[in-house]
Design a protein around this nucleic acid. Structure first.
Lengths: 213, 213
DNA sequence: TTGTTTCTGTACTCAAGAGTTCAGTTGGCG
DNA sequence: CGCCAACTGAACTCTTGAGTACAGAAACAA
């Protein structure tokens, strides 16, 4: 009967509505990554070229909008790693491809927009506890799983010899990507030359341990 | 001449004032780490058992108080690493001591209060850009330098053989501490058994590469 | 003791920003 | 065309929290 008081009116639909929705999320993403969660709804609405009321028609609250933004960014993040893993799986020269993978991983992982979002999630963990878990699950965890499968595959094909794949996966991330994330988490960045040595040496270290003899 | 309009009245001095100052910083630290920068000044004053006005007599603003809290925590953080490095320097059995060092490092680095503060700094980077640099400089950078010296020393004594000490230092941190920091930065924690394998295996990996032959 | 500094408690100002209201407009679908 | 859902814009409410004012009490120093 009539309107359910616990259900808010369905979000707008239609051509225009869809356009607006996209614009809002894009604007929100832009502003959140640039100014943090402090970015104002008025500001976001303005940037999206839309009235504030429209924003609230699409997303019931700021929290909801933020969740949408972060959620959207996650899918993209994992895509990268999935592609990398695919390329790695068919490798002939493991060293070569592992180096490429590491390079691409670092490049993707140090993209300023992505880093800003990462740090944003970190900072708003208290406000969005679920978001941390979601981020973990649909980002890092899936990437780790993907890399794990590939490493297992490479073991089966006799290119690598890894006793504890779970550990090896973490080590690979640790030796390549993590130093950058750590630096970025306090607003810094690794000097280019150190980053380069770290990358080469990291892959070397990894192979020295796990390359099939 | 009288009072300089650009200079605020000197902070209170005296026995009682000192006691209060301590209490305020302690309370602020407690509340900031527990509730983030959103913790209210009223709340802090109450926790310190002091009037809000008193807080403002000692620290001109919330920003100032926050800076004081973080600054204070930094000194302590480095102390740990300095001690570890000292113990490591005189090592006979490098493997053994390296393992201990790693264990202690992880233990210290995963202390909830410290992690909370780390993540807090990450989240407030936009508000306090200097703080990131200060944190970097007086925490990680000093610790890295300390470990670097020790590794160099161990090379000189023929226990290790490291070509690029700067890289080796980062690798050591990466293989032991960083996975924990990364997990914590999105609100997670490594499963105990994985953490354990990671630690042992990390040290092994490190030694396999750098132990003098 | 006496004078000064510091502290208390309460009540206040002020600014910012989330979310709402509403009367009126516009885009798009049948 | 003609209707309705979606949108505008501007003014408005409410909450929250930083920082202040002030008059009186307590500590402390000389």
């Amino acid at each position: 009967m009539g309107k359910d008081s616990s259900t808010r009116p369905a979000p707008p639909s239609g051509r225009r509505a869809e356009r607006n929705r996209q614009a809002i999320v894009a604007a929100a993403r832009e502003l959140f990554t640039r100014e943090g969660f402090e970015a104002g709804m008025d500001q976001i609405a303005a940037e999206a070229g839309v009235s504030k009321v429209t924003v609230y028609n699409h997303f019931g609250s700021k929290e909801e909008l933020f969740t949408e933004v972060v959620g959207q960014a996650m899918g993209e993040a994992h895509t990268t790693m999935a592609e990398l893993a695919a390329r790695l799986a068919g490798a002939d020269d493991v060293r070569e491809v592992l180096l490429d993978t590491a390079r691409a991983l670092v490049e993707a992982g140090t993209d300023p927009a992505r880093l800003a979002l990462r740090n944003l999630v970190t900072g708003e963990l208290r406000r969005f506890p679920e978001l941390g878990r979601a981020y973990q699950h649909s980002g890092p965890a899936r990437s780790a799983a993907a890399l794990g499968e590939v490493l297992t595959e490479l073991c089966a094909r006799g290119r690598l010899d890894i006793a504890d794949v779970e550990v090896a996966v973490v080590q690979f991330f640790s030796l390549t990507l993590y130093p950058h994330l750590i630096a970025a988490s306090i607003g810094g960045a690794l000097p280019a030359d150190l980053a380069d040595r770290l990358l080469r040496d990291g892959v070397e270290l990894f192979l020295q341990r796990y390359q099939a003899s």
